[in-house]
Nucleic acid binder design. Structure first.
Lengths: 191, 191
DNA sequence: GTCTATATAAGGATAGAC
DNA sequence: GTCTATCCTTATATAGAC
């Protein structure tokens, strides 16, 4: 793997673990096994390298999410698959955690990939919900965009709760709670 | 206000804005209008001061949440009030944001107030849900703890989505989505 | 209690040799 | 392309005067 690639990979790992403000060029170089010169040869500086790393991470996350959402099954089953897909819960979301970084939120350029990723996933989920409404699997009064936002928020908030308690249990509980609200019930059952 | 109090207040503000790793003693002192000596006289160091600040913030947030959750109204209305209470959405949650700080998650002492705050709010909401089930306002198959986790996660995740897009809209959408799933429907309506 | 001085390390970047 | 040397600033803390 090229030095440039190793620098990007190290930056991605550190951004995930420690965020932007908590990640120093020195730490990146050590992890990548490179010297100062290499980094400043390939990239203009820390923000430039971070941008490359963030874009890569965002693309990968989007691809993973779309892979699950475009899978087989009914609309409910696809949303369920998205919510239940394997995650390293205690590490948190490599994209979502960036929103807590003041320097990233302050930069339109660094924030853009984060914004775009959530936006595309939300649109995809919203479409699935609308599909489910047409098929009668979801109640007609539900709004696709709103449900999609709730689904994404449950995931992102689940990471927060899990990290607060040091256990993935809270993440799982939140997901199960949302699924219990979303689950279609057959008409033979009284509500 | 005493110097010690001003130091705590400045720290609370900075922790909210920039997190633990992003907050330097120097910045705290400047904001508090104090010198180096004052800080190290009243506190053992940055972690000690941060702990005092976090405890204060956690207590205040808990009090605010309980104030709303213990208010008047049906169980659904009280949860609705909690979700719709005024928030400075783009600033994020002063407690939740701490979970993205590696140094805080790594310290049992610094993480404890965060964990405790979420735990107590979750219990309170869970109790309200169980109450609503008894009254027939919520479906009997819902689990109080799980719904409570979903409610908290929607809020925490809403902050993440809002900060990603630079607008409170995503927060509001997620909350409305969850409320539309949670809202009691009268039996005259067909599902 | 509060201040200034000082100390050591780290953050972030540039210069120039190879 | 990569390395080392060097630079200036900030982070975090201690010492000791007032």
């Amino acid at each position: 793997m090229s030095t440039s690639e190793r620098l990007i990979d190290s930056t991605r790992e550190l951004l995930w673990e420690r965020g932007y403000v908590g990640t120093s060029p020195k730490a990146i170089l050590e992890r990548a096994g490179a010297g100062q010169g290499s980094m400043y040869h390939h990239f203009k500086g820390k923000p430039d390298l971070a941008l490359a790393a963030i874009r890569r991470t965002a693309e990968e996350l989007l691809a993973t999410a779309e892979g699950v959402l475009d899978g087989p099954g009914t609309p409910y089953e696809r949303i369920e698959a998205y919510l239940l897909r394997e995650r390293d819960v205690l590490r948190g979301c490599p994209v979502g955690r960036l929103t807590m970084d003041p320097d990233i939120v302050a930069s339109d350029e660094l924030r853009a990939p984060v914004d775009k990723t959530f936006d595309l996933i939300r649109e995809r989920i919203a479409g699935i919900v609308e599909e489910g409404k047409e098929q009668g699997q979801f109640a007609p009064w539900l709004d696709g965009e709103e449900i999609a936002a709730a689904v994404l928020a449950t995931v992102q908030g689940g990471y927060v709760l899990a990290r607060a308690s040091g256990s993935p249990a809270a993440f799982d509980a939140g997901v199960r709670g949302l699924l219990s609200l979303l689950a279609p019930r057959d008409n033979t059952r009284t509500r």
